[in-house]
Nucleic acid binder design. Structure first.
Lengths: 344, 344
DNA sequence: AAGGCTTACGAAAACGGTTTCGTGTTAATA
DNA sequence: TATTAACACGAAACCGTTTTCGTAAGCCTT
């Protein structure tokens, strides 16, 4: 086992000082050609690589960024992560991921852990529980320490930081308008319990669209499903469809949409003739569902890339003294992807 | 902006030495009650937390583990990651993820970057290109430096390290036997170009099953699709189905299976009556496909948990001098989950 | 009163680098 | 020949901890 070699080893071996070795490896003007060549050759031979931790301590820069997301087995979040990772890597940063599991406590713990020097900044989407509690002190503490933070998708107005979003409300409105244009009369809103910020925005888009036509909002057309992917019960959905005679459904995520499509099909309804569906999140399910699902593409990868860019810019400008502190909110335009679950 | 406070600050403020502060915070016997209380109160007031980087440097332990996977927008890998992350977190470790993107070079670069002190050990699945090149020097260098490594799923015999696997070959054999039991005569093998280790094993299981019945292997029943999830062309698959009159298909992943099911349905074939399907990876697609897909569950989360456990044990035993170095390979049993794409 | 033992603390080294500044040697200049 | 500048290098501080070891002060013992 050949342990990693350090400057000290090289210095001892070559009978020069540590400083000389350090400078020689950086090709400093101060050091003679001879010495530089000798040192560099030796370093290459023994495959010297500087220790990242020591450099981090010296520079007070880790070149790590912390990403905290509610879930990892999740198409949208992994897509965003991909964007983050690619951009960050290309800029020489590594990414430490923590999963909050939709739990406030885990979010806090992970954040505090990483904030003690492990990362230069955070990119995160709030956990459901955090949004429910409306408690953002852990975020504030971090930003007050001068650690940059970028929120994406699941953001909160209460937190002063950079943000990246999509136009959830507007695209939802467009989607529902599309259904209305196609003559749908009784459009269901399939959403979660209302603490989730994004679900709320999408619901408001749904209301907007109805208001555009001066249609009354029928509370009976709204069904709330638990925000757990597995173990969704078909019975209430079927009961809902039977009772309300809906002819279209706007769902706040693709899982809900596919699930509901299946229930409708089991009831003998034809998609999109009898009932049409629109979902959110252009994931694998939407593409491979039967019929394929019309859905809103959130452009997660781009979102991640932008978040990473914003964060790294902040990290690298931090000129020490407190800046103007003008935070940006970047809104990306989502895209409606039309497939077979709506009439073309 | 209140910057992080250090031992030095506390020491200066309280007019004691840094060592005293350090010891007081650790409740050392050496320090008087009075001083301890004073220091601890002050530390709490200013929310002192030790700097992780400094501790890492001192201990030569980062409490970080590096995970390198070929892809992140991928159900199986994220599932494994979830297992890793949960176990690691619970043990006080953080996880740095790098995505090799199926590229050898990226794998090497990421590994070297992290190996310079950023992590205490690695958990990884080999990139496709690495398996194709059969070049594992980057892994050997890391292990020779005494950094523990655990490979999962995509492993290589050439690398001496701990491994976690599923019984790919055996479960594939069982799956194909199930199809044979149900009277299928012409069973297709839908696989990738052959460099992928796991595809190979699954193919061998397919061969095994046929040999069990003394059936000849018909090369015409094997179709190889490109290992890219998107943009698969339907034409060759349809041509294949038409020409070979297959009555079942064993697919090495769920994407292939769902894709092929769709092609078959478009051709007017009934599933499972005319043709039945079995896939690998019990992901979302399998559950929500129409019909639902019979598939092999790889128990990714458990796999990740075990990998993390093995790694952390290695990391924490490292008694300095080179141990016996007996590596383990843990083989998990996959499970065949029967759904509607095969006859029950 | 001298020696020994606690008690309570500080100095300093160490982890592995970077960087500033000081200095001995040589060569160029007056 | 004396002065000075350039060159090449080393000492030491620093980043924030931990930990070993040394020691001053106070008390007890005989």
């Amino acid at each position: 086992m050949k342990r990693k070699i350090t400057l000290k080893h090289i210095a001892r071996e070559l009978e020069v000082s540590i400083s000389t070795v350090s400078k020689a490896l950086k090709n400093s003007e101060e050091i003679s050609r001879d010495t530089k060549e000798k040192v560099q050759a030796f370093a290459k031979l023994y495959n010297y690589k500087p220790n990242n931790v020591a450099i981090s301590l010296k520079n007070k820069r880790t070149k790590n960024i912390g990403v905290i997301i509610p879930e990892i087995v999740h198409h949208f979040f992994t897509t965003v992560f991909r964007g983050i990772e690619q951009y960050a890597n290309q800029k020489g940063y590594n990414v430490i991921v923590c999963v909050s599991d939709e739990s406030f406590d885990k979010e806090v713990i992970n954040m505090e852990l990483l904030a003690n020097g492990s990362v230069d900044g955070f990119i995160m989407a709030l956990s459901a529980e955090t949004q429910l509690k409306n408690d953002y002190n852990h975020l504030k503490e971090v930003t007050e320490q001068g650690i940059p933070l970028v929120l994406f998708d699941r953001v909160a107005d209460e937190v002063a930081c950079d943000k990246v979003l999509i136009n959830d409300r507007e695209i939802a409105r467009q989607a529902v308008n599309k259904l209305l244009d196609q003559g749908r009369k009784r459009i269901a809103l399939v959403t979660t319990d209302n603490y989730l910020n994004v679900s709320n925005k999408r619901a408001r888009g749904y209301f907007d669209a109805l208001e555009d036509r001066n249609q009354e909002i029928d509370e009976n057309l709204i069904i709330k499903l638990p925000y757990t992917y597995l173990g969704m019960d078909k019975v209430p959905i079927q009961a809902f469809f039977e009772k309300e005679k809906v002819d279209a459904a706007f769902c706040v995520n693709e899982m809900f949409a596919v699930h509901c499509m299946r229930v409708a099909q089991d009831m003998g309804l034809k998609i999109p003739e009898d009932i049409s569906f629109i979902g959110f999140t252009d994931g694998i399910l939407s593409k491979y569902a039967n019929p394929t699902l019309t859905t809103v593409a959130q452009h997660g990868e781009q979102m991640g890339e932008i978040a990473a860019k914003m964060l790294i810019e902040r990290v690298e400008q931090e000129n020490g003294d407190d800046e103007e502190e003008i935070f940006q909110t970047k809104v990306l335009s989502a895209t409606l992807i039309e497939r077979d679950s709506t009439i073309n």
